[in-house]
Nucleic acid binder design. Structure first.
Length: 427
RNA sequence: GCGAGGAUAGCCCAGCCUGGUAAGGCGCAGGAUUGCUAAUCCUGUGCUCUUUGAGCUCGGGGGUUCGAAUCCCCCUCCUCGCGCCA
């Protein structure tokens, strides 16, 4: 959520940012917001003047009655006011409701370095690491590899739960846990606090952490309960301090969360994405930071560096893209994606996403920072980045580490988490 | 699922029976006095607006009333106990 004061005083900043996104609908909403906000303040003023009069008379009545006098004259005058107040209040509330509604839907202001473009084809490569390995045999897709080694059973998962789920078996299930443990250890060693969060959240908390459109497209709702399955542990970590004031001496708060993630929307399945690439359910280790506003760009780079170090250690070639205006979403002011090399497809594909949400998410959640009991408060910045999402990391490992004989080598850094195993074994 | 008790400002807590417009403490900020990293005293303290002023704020919503933290109705959440349970 944007600061209403910023919109009142510098609406052109917001307008420019929306123009870069090419979002005409939101620009119209902004214009409506500016008008309604002004009307709201006028309406509020009128209502307040009337309430002031009512309060004054009520006070007189109290004083007259205290000394046993006759207040019937004042009571008669006062009795006429409430109806008019009610009418003005209705008007004021209606205006305010619309103002808030629009405020919740306007996206964050983009950082100046975000490239302008309509979709992901306009994302700009800012870094490249590692050389794709040359293979002298015909590559298998990760799905073929997993099934031929007996390490996944997509068909039975479909029978039991439908498309988008799977049974991981044997060494692949072990690899999933190894990736989780590896990512967690890396982050804990860097001083991040490990969090196992709730996997479900109330709607009121969820509205703070994400775009409302996600509820229809992405979220699973628990029937007859006010609960949604989380789409990422970013969400419960962000909501942790909802409606609180974080002691400024405690910032930055650096967290690493792990959870299973649940998403309804998984998109189309092609030959190469059959299997683990898009799932209704997957495991992910996620980094999250609350910090002082002036530090957030520094930590944005830190979060990105943390994740790159892990992919380097895993020996997976990747490049980093600066995500463009048309692909960045509502919350982030700037976003880097790591796209790892998928040899079978011969292209890079998204595996992580590093966002600086500036004060946008924290304001939605009503999180402030300052001294407890103090009167100077500001809105902290929030940032998040994937550490490792195991499903896509496993796709990358299966494809990049496959051998001519159909086996798959285990990346060295993961072996200590798999009992020293060097190859994924057949089940 | 049943029963009981709760929700008041950054935190703790009083007021509710008996309606008259949120007391006190902690913390925080400023000041006085003092001068061992201490103590004492004074003033201030949340939100909004078009800020010399006014309005709002006692979990949320509605009702009664000239006037509601207080009375009435509905709802939400929390805690404890019982039941169930990995």
């Amino acid at each position: 959520m944007l600061d209403i004061k910023l919109i009142r005083e510098n609406s052109e900043i917001v307008r420019d940012s929306l123009r870069k996104r090419g979002d005409d609908e939101k620009i119209q909403m902004l214009e409506e917001l500016v008008g309604k906000d002004q009307q709201w303040r006028q309406s509020l003023d009128k209502a307040n003047a009337l309430k002031a009069e009512r309060n004054k008379i009520a006070k007189q009545i109290a004083e007259v009655k205290k000394v046993g006098g006759d207040a019937s004259e004042q009571i008669k005058r006062s009795a006429e006011i409430p109806k008019e107040i009610a009418r003005l209040d209705d008007e004021t509330i209606a205006l305010k409701t619309r103002v808030d509604e629009i405020l919740m839907r306007l996206p964050n202001i983009l950082h100046e370095s975000v490239p302008v473009g309509a979709d992901d084809s306009a994302n700009v490569e800012v870094k490249k690491w590692g050389k794709p390995k040359e293979f002298n045999f015909e590559l298998k897709s990760h799905g073929e590899l997993a099934e031929s080694l007996g390490l996944a059973d997509f068909d039975r998962a479909t029978k039991v739960a439908g498309a988008g789920f799977n049974y991981l078996k044997g060494d692949l299930a072990l690899l999933d846990l190894a990736l989780m443990n590896y990512a967690i250890n890396c982050m804990v060693n860097k001083g991040y606090t490990l969090i196992e969060p709730p996997f479900m959240m109330r709607r009121s908390a969820y509205e703070g952490v994400t775009d409302l459109a996600d509820f229809e497209n992405v979220m699973y709702k628990i029937e007859d309960e006010d609960l949604y399955l989380i789409a990422t542990s970013e969400h419960p970590m962000a909501a942790m301090f909802m409606d609180e004031i974080i002691d400024e001496d405690k910032l930055p708060l650096k967290y690493v969360g792990f959870s299973t993630c649940f998403r309804r929307e998984i998109g189309a399945h092609g030959v190469d994405t059959k299997g683990l690439f898009r799932m209704h359910q997957f495991n992910k280790v996620e980094q999250f930071i609350f910090c002082q506003p002036e530090d957030s760009w520094k930590y944005h780079e830190e979060l990105q560096a943390n994740t790159e170090a892990m992919f380097q250690a895993l020996g997976l070639p990747y490049h980093v893209v600066n995500v463009c205006t048309g692909d960045i979403g509502n919350l982030a002011a700037k976003k880097y994606d790591i796209e790892v090399w998928f040899p079978r497809q011969g292209k890079y594909g998204e595996v992580t996403s590093c966002s600086n949400c500036t004060d946008y998410q924290a304001r939605r959640l009503n999180i402030r920072t300052g001294k407890h009991g103090g009167d100077k408060k500001s809105v902290p910045h929030t940032l998040n980045n994937t550490a490792i999402a195991t499903s896509r990391a496993m796709v990358a490992i299966l494809e990049n580490y496959q051998n001519a004989d159909g086996t798959v080598t285990v990346p060295e850094v993961l072996r200590q988490y798999m009992g020293g195993k060097e190859k994924l074994g057949k089940v």
